[in-house]
Simulated assay, not measured.
Amino acid sequence: MANDALHTDHELISQMAAGGENAFTQLYQRHWQKLYLTACKKIQDKDAAREIIHDIFLDLWKRRQELAVANLPAYLHKALHYRIINRIVSKKDLFFFEILESSGKSLYEADQALLAKDFTALIATWVEALPERRRQIFVRYYFQHLTTKEIAESLQISTKTVQNQLNISVQFLRARFGHLLSLLIMLEEISRQK
């Protein structure tokens, strides 16, 4: 059993594909906590975060024979991202009524909050459409708040490459959503305060 901890994710995925429940358990134990903490930060609901993580790993087990995953942490993070977006979209109407029930909220404020959620989902969809490396850089810089140097080191590329990829992303974002850029800045500030 002590040697099991030395297996890479890739080896455990192969074992899991062959029906290895122990390999699945090890993968779960390695990755659930980081996913859970990320989910809690994003949706601020511990029970919902647990449910999302459970669903992600249940899906991983169900699809174990057909999965071809090169980077399990990235795969799990992307799965979490999509589950959170789906949850936000499915809860949109409930969110609207919760805002209205809060004391002192106007219809205008409720509408603005919904627009902010919609814009966040739009940006998330746009980010997912970026080429893989550019997306990694964009997410790490704007959502994980890493420096260009930290990103360059983690991806083993030059700082200049990171800066160029960020510039390309921002130029495209401005061209597509220039009129909404002030809202993006506002959302960025709100996310940093949480």
Rank of each mutant, 00 (worst) to 15 (best):
K92P: 00
Q136W: 03
I52A: 09
T38G: 02
Q26V: 08
V69M: 04
P73E: 04
A23F: 05
K41R: 14
V162D: 06
L12E: 11
Q165L: 05
K78D: 06
Q65T: 14
L187W: 03
A5I: 07
I190G: 01
D93A: 12
Y108V: 13
P131F: 09
L114N: 03
E11Y: 01
T161A: 14
A74H: 04
A110W: 05
A175I: 07
H81C: 08
A68W: 01
L27F: 14
A39S: 12
R63W: 05
L183D: 14
L130P: 14
F96C: 06
H54I: 03
E109G: 06
I56W: 09
R176L: 14
Y28W: 15
V139E: 01
I157D: 02
F143N: 05
H54R: 10
Y141T: 00
A116T: 12
V170I: 13
E98A: 10
A79Y: 04
L184D: 06
L115W: 05
I84N: 04
F24H: 11
Q163W: 04
E51V: 03
I56S: 10
I190L: 10
L183F: 08
K117E: 15
T38W: 09
A129Y: 06
D111T: 09
N71G: 04
W61H: 15
I84V: 14
F177K: 03
D118K: 06
I43F: 10
I85A: 13
I43P: 11
I56T: 11
A129L: 08
Y142A: 06
F24K: 08
G20E: 02
R133Q: 09
L173I: 05
S90D: 12
T8A: 12
R50F: 01
L94T: 11
A74G: 13
R135W: 01
D9K: 05
A48F: 01
R83V: 00
E11Q: 15
K78Y: 05
T147W: 03
K149A: 10
